[in-house]
Structures are given as C-alpha cells and as structure tokens.
C-alpha cells in the first residue's frame, strides 16, 4: 500500500491544522456516558435495596440511601438461608471443573498442534463442532445416562458436564498461542534428554501460563453462573450451587426484599471481584473465544 503512506503524512498535517474543540465529540461522550449509566444503574439499585428493610424499600425513593444500612441482611441469608453452603458448593464445583478443563484442554491442544499424527485435524474438528451443539438437546439423554451410572445428584455429574461443554471454547482460546510456539523449544528440550511428559509439564505449561489464565477465568465465570445442569441433575439441597440455591431461597422469602438483594449481591461478588483484578484477561478471553468462530 505505497499510496497510503503518502496519504498518512498529508493527514497528520491536516489534523494538526484543524485541532479545535468540537461539540460533536462532546455528544459522543454523552452517548457513551448514558449507556454506561444504564448498564450500572440496575446494580446500584440492587445494592441499595439489599441494605434496606421492607419499610424503606416500599416508602423511600428507589435510589434513596438507607438511613441505617441493614448489613444484618447479609449475615442472615448467609447462615439462615443456606447461602453459605451454596457458595461453598459453587466454589468446589467451579474450582474442580476449571482445573480439569484447563488441564485436559492443554493436553489435547498440545497433542493436536505440536505432535505429528494423521487424524489431528479430524479430532480438532470434532471439538470445534462441539461449540455449536445446544445444551438442551443433550439434556434428556444426559439425565438418563447419569441416572443409569448412579451419578445423579452427585457433584461429579455437573463437574464432568461443565468440563465437556467448556473444552471446545477453552481449546479455541489456547490454539492460537500453541501454534505460535517456536519448534526450537521442543527440540532443545529433547536434545537435553527431557521426556515428553516432563517437557509438557515443565516447559510448555509454564510458557502458556498467560493464555491458560485467560481460559481459567472465562471458565470460572461460565461455571459459576451455570444453571440448567445443576437444576436438572442435582436434587439434594445440600449439593446445590448458588444459581439454583438462590432460586430456592428466593422462592421461600419472596417478600423479603432486603434478603433477596443481599443474596443476589453475594452471588455476584466473586465474579465482580475477579473482574476488578483481571478485567483485561476477561475482555481478551471473551473476544478471542467468539471472534474466531
């Protein structure tokens, strides 16, 4: 594009000449600010009513601050409402599934992109087609399968299902990174007499840590928020995760606004905290995971 470079030089000059404060630009900021407010406002309202009692919810203006913040709403739902237990279950299920998914996806991606075998493209295709399969079309057979093998109402049923359904997306994010790894890396390792397992765990896995972190956080968000599988496979209250647990809880306390608000805020908090720390990774994971499809 030789003609473009000339054009750029010309424009730089032009832009310097017309550097004025434009009212049009202000309008753009107003639009973006408005959208930002709309995205945040429902959540601010949520936090406000989670700190009110019903009296204040019904009588104060929606965005009025509570006179005496009812932090007790949080303590109450955590113990009485079993939210603490659901929270713990969510941590166990999410944590196990994330580790399993990231490990299995890394192993397959390594085998597909770095090792030489004939069927690698076909196997990769099988995983990628998995991205298109609607969860609901598998629900009835999975229900009957877990019933038959005795995993119904067991955390393993949801952990394995999360892993299977998140493998394709996880691999898609990993693929790009694995393809760019230099061959010399493996050559040098093998020259030094390194076994292939040692090479994978000691060299490849640590090198891919940044992209592994991206897939881990994306998996964490999806698993933490998952609803249908838990709702279908888990019936014991003691095994439920937060998404289904808060459904139960709110069904029982449907008139207690403060308690409902506190429950919802607690369920959102881990993800929002993760977002504060790792927002770049989350943005990166969400864009790379979808755009290549």
């Amino acid at each position: 594009m030789p003609s473009n470079t000339a054009a750029v030089e010309k424009t730089e000059g032009l832009r310097l000449g017309s550097l004025r404060i434009r009212p049009g630009k202000l309008l753009l900021y107003v639009i973006l600010g408005l959208v930002a407010v709309l995205q945040i406002l429902p959540l601010i309202w949520l936090v406000l009513f989670s700190l009110k009692d019903n009296q204040e919810v019904f009588n104060l203006a929606p965005f009025a601050l509570p006179a005496d913040p009812q932090w007790s709403n949080y303590a109450r739902v955590w113990t009485d409402g079993n939210i603490g237990l659901y929270f713990f279950n969510s941590v166990i299920v999410t944590g196990t599934a994330v580790i399993l998914t990231v490990l299995l996806a890394s192993l397959v991606t390594f085998a597909i992109t770095r090792m030489q075998w004939k069927l690698n493209k076909l196997v990769l295709g099988l995983f990628m087609v998995g991205l298109m399969i609607p969860v609901h079309s598998t629900l009835i057979p999975l229900f009957s399968f877990f019933n038959t093998i005795g995993l119904m109402d067991h955390h393993l049923s949801i952990i394995l299902t999360y892993t299977a359904f998140n493998l394709p997306l996880t691999m898609m994010i990993l693929l790009g990174f694995y393809y760019t790894l230099p061959r010399e890396l493996e050559e040098a390792a093998i020259m030094d007499g390194c076994s292939i397992h040692r090479m994978f765990f000691r060299i490849i896995l640590p090198i891919t840590a940044p992209v592994v972190a991206t897939t881990a956080i994306i998996n964490m968000i999806y698993n933490w928020n998952e609803f249908v599988f838990v709702n279908t496979f888990i019936s014991s209250d003691s095994l439920k995760t937060l998404t289904v647990g808060i459904q139960n809880f709110i069904g029982q306390y449907s008139t207690d606004w403060g308690a409902i608000g506190a429950t919802l805020v607690i369920s959102m908090l881990p993800i929002l905290i993760a977002f504060l720390i790792l927002s770049n990774k989350i943005v990166e994971g969400m864009t790379s995971g979808s755009v290549k499809g």
């Binding site: 968000i221 928020n225 609803f227």
Partner: peptide, 9 residues
C-alpha cells in the same frame, strides 16, 4: 459488567 452475571441473578 452485566455479561458477567448469571442469568438467574
């Protein structure tokens, strides 16, 4: 931010 929250919440 809303995209990070569960559909249930």
């Amino acid at each position: 931010i809303p995209m990070l929250l569960s559909s249930v919440a």
